[in-house]
Simulated assay, not measured.
Amino acid sequence: MQSGIGVVHNALLLDGPELTVVRGPFRPAPRSFLHGEPVMSPQPPWFVTNRTAATTGRLLTDFAAAPRWSALPRIFTFALRG
């Protein structure tokens, strides 16, 4: 067996999924700035070094309970500052 044979992790039970390989440079910040690739990727809230994890988690929980468009800018602000 080689990689790409069979169906694994087909959570949506899609018929006939196809293998996709994506290749490209991936350098998360701050290394991306050294190579001239500015990236604005939020740090995951479960990282210990994320400064806004508690606030982002609370905002995401509130949004899951009562979704509304007006809450998204604040969530994005705290997520990107993490």
Rank of each mutant, 00 (worst) to 15 (best):
M1A: 14
M1H: 13
M1C: 11
Q2I: 08
S3F: 14
G4M: 07
G4D: 04
I5C: 12
G6Q: 02
V7N: 10
V8G: 02
H9I: 07
A11V: 12
L12H: 05
L12G: 08
L12A: 14
L12I: 01
L13Y: 01
L13A: 15
L13P: 06
L13C: 13
L14N: 01
L14R: 09
L14C: 04
D15N: 10
G16P: 06
G16L: 04
P17H: 02
E18Q: 15
E18A: 15
E18R: 15
L19Y: 07
T20D: 09
T20M: 13
V21D: 05
G24M: 09
G24C: 10
G24W: 05
P25H: 00
P25K: 05
P28E: 08
P28R: 06
A29F: 14
A29M: 09
A29P: 11
P30R: 10
S32F: 05
S32V: 08
F33I: 00
F33M: 11
L34F: 00
L34M: 04
L34T: 05
H35D: 03
G36D: 00
G36V: 03
G36Y: 05
E37V: 07
E37W: 12
P38S: 06
P38T: 01
P38L: 01
V39N: 05
M40N: 10
M40T: 07
P42Q: 03
P45G: 04
F47C: 05
F47R: 08
V48G: 11
V48F: 13
V48M: 08
T49V: 12
R51H: 09
R51S: 13
R51F: 00
T52Q: 06
A53D: 05
A53G: 02
A54W: 08
A54K: 09
T55K: 10
T55H: 03
T56E: 11
T56R: 02
G57Y: 00
G57N: 04
R58Q: 08
L60F: 01
L60W: 01
T61V: 04
T61P: 00
T61I: 05
T61L: 11
T61H: 11
T61S: 11
D62Y: 00
F63K: 08
F63H: 09
A64F: 14
A65P: 01
P67L: 00
P67M: 10
P67S: 02
P67W: 07
W69R: 15
W69A: 15
W69E: 15
W69P: 15
S70V: 14
S70H: 04
A71L: 06
L72T: 07
R74W: 11
R74S: 11
R74C: 04
R74Q: 14
I75P: 02
F76N: 12
F78D: 14
A79R: 09
L80N: 06
R81L: 14
R81Y: 02
R81G: 05
R81A: 15
